[in-house]
Amino acid sequence: MRNLRIGLWALVAVVIGLFALFAIQLSRPKDDSVESRMIGKPVPEFALKPIVAGRPGLTSADLKDGQPKLLNIFASWCVPCAAEAPQLAELEAHGADIVGVAIRDRPEDVARFLDFYGDPYSRIGGDDLSEVQIDIGSSGVPETFIVDGKGTIRYQHIGDIREDDVPLLLQKLNEAAK
């Protein structure tokens, strides 16, 4: 009977713990983002074909040219990608070198998208099968990675870039330049 008592109070304790867990989870917004495990690792080898006329494609070698870069994963069919366009322009104005990876996209759609929302990219590679996206550990569009001059991934921003995210990204870019 004593064992039963102890077991029961243990059960009560477990239930209290459970409720505490529920309360904690309930009190904070649900974070559905999946972080890449590739941060701190070199970018995987890839070579993406150009997707708009007159703009070079993107290879992993381009990311090892000594200059830190913003690697922006986007698509013309993605609504938040359009929303972050002004912030990308602002980052470019601050001297960021932005390279793009267009996910599952057609050349004419990308061209129209750039015409409409602005074009901050120095290079754009077309990733028709999300290969680079998967290889770099990105789980959606848009996402932005900071890659240092040696081709090491230093930082990942998930979702569209908001106005308040710009200073942090610039700071991370500076850190990557050191």
Partner: peptide
């Protein structure tokens, strides 16, 4: 799903 117009892999 957001509509992309590419054929599946």
């Amino acid at each position: 799903f957001a509509q992309d117009n590419m054929p599946p892999a």
